[in-house]
Design a protein around this nucleic acid. Structure first.
Lengths: 212, 212
DNA sequence: CGAGGAATTGAGCAATATCAAACCCAGTGG
DNA sequence: CCACTGGGTTTGATATTGCTCAATTCCTCG
């Protein structure tokens, strides 16, 4: 379901100029780029979690995607970022000049192909997201997110990198509904919630059934 | 807002083998490809409107996108279609072998670049859709769809190619809510609704304000 | 003119949002 | 060591939006 947007090994240090010098760290909550910024850089996430999303004027926020280590983000069709990217917790990113990358892609068909795959995988994730937001109930959405996070954690133990607010803004719900749904799952024995930021999936099948 | 997924002129007849022979017509409601079909063809819409979307087991449907003349659809990361494509009204599509296209892209960097642009534009449309479904009210969603359709009609007169059910399944609403919202807009003087399938935007600014 | 599907309208209901209060905990300073 | 503070989270009560179910109307086509 979740095809990771991995660019490596295309992005491994030797493959790109100035790779070593271009790793930058961000503190929790820091903005990496904002809606409207010129999009002359793309990013590869070395460590941590990043959220990309948009803000409506009245403060409503929608998170488009969470990005995890190894994934790339910040690609745009035009010359301006349409989303804002922020660090969720501590983050290290490798910065790549967009121009350098497109030059490389123009010379090397393999890089071009990988770039295309990354984008189309992002499109498919976004389509899954659309289905989730358009046609699923609060329970189904929360279950879907937990499964997605478990998939990439590679087990049934999840250390949530993000706050309830982040989860809500990804799922198109309120913080209260997310919280209630989690305690409901917990009471039903579907998950254990030893701490606020740690979830254990106890009945994966039941959660998957919610998402069918 | 709506970047059309145009492939022409890359796809103009001379650029592709067997272009003349590969135009196919579909009747209203006909399926062009289905979720799970092998994805060895891609499509360029010559005439009409196509909807792509997915169905949950219990019958809930979510339309990912409407495609209009000149746009391409049917691209997949894997070798299987993840969505179903159906004709909305009468449709003519040009069929292109995926293999032939990727070969062409491998030889011609310009084709590769265009392909990439098409995909990333689709991603951005999907992200707009996510924002719409996650954080907008019924009124805002309907207004958004009307503006999107007006944009591509190039005026304030819209001949709706799709049914209320299609609109609802795109917007993540029910048919009744779409209908009520349209009559509400009509009563408020924002639109005129001379027939069921024809809409005229009277107060474009007010509709845009709903979507800010 | 009649029939059938699509669209509209109405009434009541369920899911989720909103508003408000309580709680939990980590970090801080006494 | 312990009270205090403050942000994030949970819980509760109520409001609201959009859904469901049902009836009616409107077109389109025969």
């Amino acid at each position: 379901m979740l095809s990771p947007l991995r660019l490596e090994p295309a992005f491994a240090p030797p493959a790109l100029p100035m790779a070593a010098a271009s790793v930058i760290r961000y503190a929790a909550g820091e903005e990496i780029f904002a809606e409207g910024d010129t999009a002359d850089l793309v990013y590869e996430l070395v460590e941590g979690t990043v959220r990309t999303g948009r803000l409506l004027r009245d403060g409503r926020r929608q998170i488009d995607a969470f990005h995890f280590a190894g994934e790339a983000f910040g690609f745009e069709a035009g010359d301006v970022h349409r989303t804002t990217a922020e660090a969720v917790g501590e983050v290290a990113v490798r910065i790549v000049r967009r121009r350098a990358l497109s030059d490389l892609a123009a010379r090397d068909g393999d890089v071009a192909r990988r770039l295309y795959q990354v984008t189309i995988a992002g499109l498919q994730r976004s389509q899954d997201h659309v289905l989730m937001l358009g046609r699923r109930s609060a329970c189904e959405r929360v279950a879907g997110l937990l499964l997605l996070l478990a998939d990439r954690a590679g087990g049934s133990e999840i250390d949530l990198p993000m706050s309830r607010q982040d989860m809500a803004d990804y799922l198109g719900l309120t913080i209260e509904t997310v919280s209630r749904t989690l305690t409901q799952f917990s009471q039903e024995g579907l998950i254990a919630l030893p701490t606020v930021r740690h979830v254990e999936l106890l009945e994966r099948d039941a959660l998957e059934a919610l998402c069918e």
